[in-house]
Simulated assay, not measured.
Amino acid sequence: MRRRGRGAAVAVESLDWFVQLAESGTFTRASEELQVSQQTLSSRLAALERELDTRLVVRSNPLALTRSGETFLAYAIEQRDARIRMLRQLGETSIGGAGVLKVGVSNVRGRLLLPNILRQFHESLPNVAVKVIEGANEELVRLAEAHEADVVIARFDGAAGDVEVHPLYEEEVVLVATPAVLGAALGVAPEEAAARAPELGLEALGACPFLLEPVDDISGRIAHAELRRAGIRPRALVEGNDMITLLHLAHDGLGAAFCPTLVLEEMPQVADGLVRVGLSPAARYRISLGTPAGIGPWSARSVFEDIAGALYGA
């Protein structure tokens, strides 16, 4: 039987699997992302190396690419991006435009921003579907870096160079609580606590019961850093991933919550009755729109960016 060798075309799926393996760094992580067994992935790589008649990967932990592997990775990424451009252009030329716009956003930010954005988006492009991909901030940044989302709403500090970042608005995490909760922590009347709140520092509130998010997203990470900075070992009355739930609990007087200003602005009915305590400058950050670089123009993505900027841009 004649060997196919280096002149043969490589299957699209093999290209995608190899890119995922190279970006993940281990067979374990790559197989989880691809939702295949490690044995299947290893067999596919071995078949690809036989097909190309060259070794692509040094099977270490983390794995390393050979020189041929680095060359093939650049080719595979180029082919993936070209395929994405082709599919989008085909959608652009169909009647009225078509396709699927993949939007990455956190659960809370999506609930607050997307209804207004998508209402106008579908008025402009009724034939373009939207797939919303939710995740923590680091997961969303990786989506943009891996070209697995068309536009991502996230904090992009330190993002890779293959992501185009367009600033959207400034956000800040503050501590919120009812006057009664602050008053109990300070040993004063609620009215006095509310009056003193703008000048309070977090270090004065060590006796507060806190409602905390974990450290795997922006507001939770900032909250824990601010507590450490203030020298507070918090009494966490409630811990959970849902900021909206924690804010409702703070409104009901259960404790003090760390909350992005966006949530307070978009939920005035819950924010009413809560007082804010400012934190350090490290609690301020920028939320941006991130798009994969080098993909080329696409009207659906541009329309989404324009609407988001008009509604929420600084």
Rank of each mutant, 00 (worst) to 15 (best):
A189Q: 09
V130D: 12
A184V: 04
E164K: 08
E171H: 03
A136I: 11
A184E: 14
A160N: 06
F156Q: 06
V103Y: 08
D162W: 04
L182M: 07
E164R: 12
R111M: 11
D162L: 11
L87S: 13
N137M: 08
V151Y: 06
A159W: 04
E148A: 15
H166N: 14
H147S: 14
D157N: 14
V174M: 08
L140M: 11
V181P: 10
R111F: 07
H166W: 06
E170W: 01
V132F: 00
A193H: 02
L90G: 13
S124L: 07
E92S: 12
V105R: 04
D162Q: 14
E123W: 04
I153H: 03
V174F: 02
A194D: 05
K131W: 01
V151S: 13
A177M: 04
G97I: 07
E139Y: 06
P179K: 05
N116V: 08
L186E: 10
G99D: 05
Q89L: 09
S94Q: 15
V152C: 11
V108W: 00
N137E: 15
L118W: 02
L90M: 14
G135V: 02
G110P: 07
V163K: 07
T93V: 15
L112S: 08
N137R: 04
G187R: 01
A193K: 00
R119W: 04
A149Y: 00
V152K: 09
E145H: 02
E191P: 03
Q89V: 04
Q89C: 03
S106C: 01
V103N: 12
L87E: 15
P190T: 06
E139R: 12
E92T: 11
I153E: 06
V132C: 08
L175N: 13
V103W: 09
A98P: 05
V173A: 12
A180N: 07
V100F: 00
I153T: 09
H147C: 12
G96C: 08
I95L: 14
L87P: 05
V105E: 07
R88S: 08
V181H: 04
E148K: 13
Y169N: 12
E134T: 15
L140I: 12
E172A: 11
Q120C: 00
A160F: 00
G99E: 07
L140K: 09
V128Y: 02
A129M: 06
E172C: 05
V103T: 12
P126G: 07
R111W: 05
P126I: 05
L140Q: 14
S106D: 13
A189D: 14
S124M: 08
A193F: 00
E171K: 00
V141F: 00
A185I: 11
V151F: 06
N116H: 12
V151I: 15
G99K: 03
F121H: 07
A98R: 13
I133S: 06
G135K: 01
L182R: 02
K131H: 10
A129Q: 13
A160T: 10
I95M: 11
G110R: 02
P167A: 06
A144T: 09
